[in-house]
Amino acid sequence: MPKLRFPFTLRTILLAGSFILLVSILLVTTARAESPAQETESYCLSCHSDPDLSLTLPSGESLSLFIDPAKLQTSLHSPLGIECEACHTNISTYPHPEIVYQSKRELARSYYQACQKCHTDQYDKTQDSMHAHVAEAGNQNAPVCTDCHGSHYVTKPDEPRATVSQTCGHCHTDVYDAYKQSIHGDALINTDNPDVPVCTDCHGVHSIQDPRTSQFRVAEPELCAGCHANATLMGKYGLSADVYNLYKTSWHGVDVAVYEAKWPTIWHDTAVCSDCHDIHNILPADNPASTVNPANLLATCQKCHPGVGPNWTGAWTGHYKISLERTPFIYYVDVFYSSLAPAILWLSAIYVVLQIIRNTVARARRSL
């Protein structure tokens, strides 16, 4: 019986089938890509790019639902492909679920928790911050992630660097106004100086603690030393880098160090940097308004030492080592006592040795 012959081999059939399947997948994928899926940014912007789109909340507040597509493209999230549903997890279709929030603030506080999914470490730090503690105590105006970083138009928080302090100033208005007048704030805002501290350099970024506690107070000198003990940095501005080491050997510094080591939770009034230089409105010593200007220094000292006279500040060396050039009188007094003290000790030792020899000789003679 003759064999049946098929016009196509099995291999040919498989190759043809695979080709048809591949083409079908490509066609379906292309069709889906051309149709805006509901979770995509472009789909959401088809409505939310309308500047007049808004919603009235039960509180009576008008909530704008407009998203500027151009500004959105400059955010950190959008170019990375992080789209709307990453944060708006409860919205996946249209019409949207009913808004259950009573006010703008309630809405903001509910949505900021979405940041935790990607920024876990930073989010966890905020939960132990002063801001979180204030919120737990009932202050719903305590800042959350979006208050500092924005919601849709998230950009780098330190570009330009002055943005950091300006952001804090939205809530801490009085503090920011004082900071702007200080040597730090003036250099930052007017000359964009990269060396001066912004708020987060002293207070931290996410785990911000209460600066009114005893722990923060006794740690303050070391905090300031982060810049003021840096010889290279201080050299750029002609400032002494010995300030921290000299403070540590002063009565103030020794006393603070003892409390920091043994009783950090007990409030102590020994002077730290801000007691003399002010907190946010720090001015150079040659500024007439500075608390450490020679004309104001006595009044500054009298805050802790009431009743002291003008001679009290005469020995103040301004955080500089005693030298012949800066403080000639104190220098010679220091040299005198530095020489006198060991001389007296040596003379006393010689006297004692001679007395021992004399007594020994006298006893030897009496025994003869």
Rank of each mutant, 00 (worst) to 15 (best):
I357A: 12
Y332D: 09
S338I: 06
T317R: 09
D275G: 06
G314F: 03
T265G: 14
S338Y: 09
G314S: 01
P288N: 06
L340G: 03
W312E: 07
G309P: 00
P328K: 00
Y332S: 03
H268A: 07
H319V: 07
D269M: 12
Y320K: 15
F329V: 14
A261W: 08
V352P: 00
P288R: 02
Y320N: 13
L298Y: 01
V272Y: 05
H319D: 11
I322T: 05
A315D: 01
S323Y: 06
W263Q: 02
L354H: 11
I279Q: 04
V292Y: 12
E260M: 15
A343D: 04
I357L: 00
F329N: 07
P310K: 05
H305P: 00
V333H: 05
I322F: 02
N287D: 10
Q302I: 02
I282T: 04
S348G: 14
L283W: 00
V308C: 10
Q302T: 00
Q302R: 07
R358C: 07
A295N: 09
C301D: 06
Y331K: 06
A271T: 07
L324K: 00
I344N: 12
Y351T: 14
W267A: 14
H319L: 11
L354K: 11
Y259G: 14
I330C: 09
P342C: 02
L340E: 02
N296L: 08
T270I: 15
L347W: 03
T300N: 01
W346Q: 13
A343F: 06
S274K: 01
W312N: 15
D275P: 05
T317I: 12
V335A: 11
I357T: 10
F329P: 11
A341Y: 15
D286F: 07
N281P: 15
H280D: 15
D278P: 03
T270W: 00
G309N: 13
Q302C: 00
K321G: 09
C276A: 07
H280Q: 14
I357W: 08
A343R: 04
A341C: 12
V335D: 01
R326H: 10
L340D: 06
F329H: 00
